[in-house]
Design a protein around this nucleic acid. Sequence first.
DNA 1: ACATCCATGTTGCCAGTGTCAACATGGATG
DNA 2: CATCCATGTTGACACTGGCAACATGGATGT
Lengths: 225, 225
Amino acid sequence: MDVYDPPMTVQTATEKRPAAEQSPPKPYHHGDLHRQILCAARDLLEENNIASLSLRAVAKKVGVSHTAPYRHFKDKESLLVGIAGEGFKEMTAQLNEAVELHPDNPRAQLQEAGHRYVKLVAENPQCVQLMFGGILPCDDTYPELHESGDIAFTALKTIIEDGQNAGMFKKGDVELMALSAWSSIHGLSLLLISGSINETASAPVETHALTTAITVTLLEGLNAG
Amino acid sequence: MDVYDPPMTVQTATEKRPAAEQSPPKPYHHGDLHRQILCAARDLLEENNIASLSLRAVAKKVGVSHTAPYRHFKDKESLLVGIAGEGFKEMTAQLNEAVELHPDNPRAQLQEAGHRYVKLVAENPQCVQLMFGGILPCDDTYPELHESGDIAFTALKTIIEDGQNAGMFKKGDVELMALSAWSSIHGLSLLLISGSINETASAPVETHALTTAITVTLLEGLNAG
DNA sequence: ACATCCATGTTGCCAGTGTCAACATGGATG
DNA sequence: CATCCATGTTGACACTGGCAACATGGATGT
């Protein structure tokens, strides 16, 4: 269900570690609480939504006191930034995989990236709302947030450039063409998770076919001229 | 301080109103608190963000007790639904204006609608996040929410159909083509207000030119074949 | 070996929030 | 004039984010 499961499964507080030789059932100092808090917060976030995510619930899920997270995150916003940051990293990873999967075929790269983007958003809708939903400040308060985004966008521009050099895409401003591609897929993804499409569309639409259709329209737009 | 002051000044509860000519069935002690609460909430929402909008602050701004809003809205979510509903209505209105502005020119209609969509989102970012941001349930809990959206989407499909009949757009599934158009513009708008574009783009981009470019790419995609 | 430090985790508290119950008010209706 | 009921108020509750003060115990230097 989750795209990136934590490498170590989350332990409930009451559960004792199977380590036999340790007499104290619960060590005072946690393993890496930082990671566990991030994972638990991610889980709770996707289970409900951003509005109903509370630091105290996260702490309870991990099995620590309600202020323990403050030793690892300055405040609630910092924790949210951490979650969003992982989302951006995963986004970048997916894009790179799409490129590697279809070497020397920018057209297929773009299509693959589109499908992976939609899938990633569909599987982590609340995280995406966090990344793009205007809860986090969009100024330079958290510069690390946009770094992965920069990398991803650069990779996208590389696809466009390669496509131009291969004669698959028309010549033109790479920045604008990359933004066109991003906008289409991003818009589709967000419309899907917001429920707008299935509600407004007269007939239910299959996501994969829809993504393909929109990607094709986009490619024809990039092709024309 | 307030952006749009209510047309009738706020009355304290104890203050009596000079019962002059009241021909319409205008109600009770207060003006229409329902409308004033909606306006105040909208203002406070755009001043900060969704997370920091509190019912109590709205009540205080209007000058009533902290539970007065509950006589007009079942709970906080219902108030948010009311705000989002107004947003959808405004969206529909903008689309219709775009159509009327360029009769018999679907291409210009689509371009105009795109610019108006981007502008509307830019001027009411928090409201848009409310409409599409996954805070409100996307099931049928509030069917009235999606009605205006349906109307708007139908209008969009009409543009596409007219364009096809006029030979401006290629033949094809109207639903899919309308979704392509919506996705592009929606994605662009949300990327803009989320700060992703100015952060990731190597050079600052002028919004209007960017919108035009993306609309043109879209139109070429709809044109191809 | 031992004393010390300090990162980590805890308890207790505060203001602020959404929401419910009980009460107050006054215009509309008989 | 009596009554009703929509509207508005007060007070309370559980919950939240966050601060301060305290507790613990692994790492460190001698």
